[in-house]
Nucleic acid binder design. Structure first.
Lengths: 111, 111
DNA sequence: CCTTGACTTCGAGTGCGCTCTAACTGTTAC
DNA sequence: GTAACAGTTAGAGCGCACTCGAAGTCAAGG
């Protein structure tokens, strides 16, 4: 069974974030469940990297750290929270659509 | 000839910016040429309000204060600068288009 | 043993774009 | 004259999202 582990350095390379940012994301609660080895060093598995890519996407699309933190906290409350999670994502989708609409309006103005 | 003048308070109401922000925009050089009356108070004419609306649009669409300042400085260098101005606006349009593209990609991912 | 290097924490610093405060001035109404 | 009020400046403060630095720990290599 293939179960690769990555150091923070490697995780940084894989995801394009800095090690600083990876630790920061963990500190502020949007990157939970990162394991440690016997000497306290973090290691990241494929699932973690997957979530980090989602994180990048959410941040890049304008979701604030705070909103992501809410989402993460809700997600940790088991399957009952699926509806609430969907609501957050729906709201975010809606926000993105609005932003696209505004930007398209500005584009027309700029012509 | 109708040539209305507005106080900073009125300009703030007309444009939806705060008086603080209007002064700040002037300080950082993206809102030049605001006139003063005999006691040093600013007054804004229709042209100023027009530019403020453009400013709002440019900021809202992601142009940085610094880029707007460059644009303003170039604009003050007479008609020779029209090409340079167009270049900046074109670049900004292009950036908006890219942003829209990215956001649309994220929307698809979120489905 | 000692150096090297990657990691750790904690707290401070940075950059952007405002936003607010303090101290002051000038005009108007009473 | 004086109080109220709208304006002025310079500079400090804020919120966000990082970003960096100092000081320390730990494992491996020479």
């Amino acid at each position: 069974m293939t179960n690769p582990r990555y150091t923070i350095q490697q995780a940084a390379e894989q995801t394009g974030l800095s090690t600083h940012t990876l630790r920061y994301y963990e500190d502020v609660g949007i990157l939970p469940g990162i394991q440690r080895n016997s000497s306290g060093h973090r290691y990241y598995d494929e699932q973690d990297l997957g979530w980090i890519h989602w994180l990048k996407m959410l941040r890049h699309s304008g979701m604030s750290i705070e909103m992501i933190r809410d989402f993460v906290q809700i997600s940790q409350q088991g399957n009952d929270s699926i509806e609430a999670r969907c609501q957050i994502l729906d709201a975010h989708r809606q926000k993105i659509r609005e932003t696209i609409g505004e930007l398209e309006g500005y584009l027309r103005l700029l012509d």
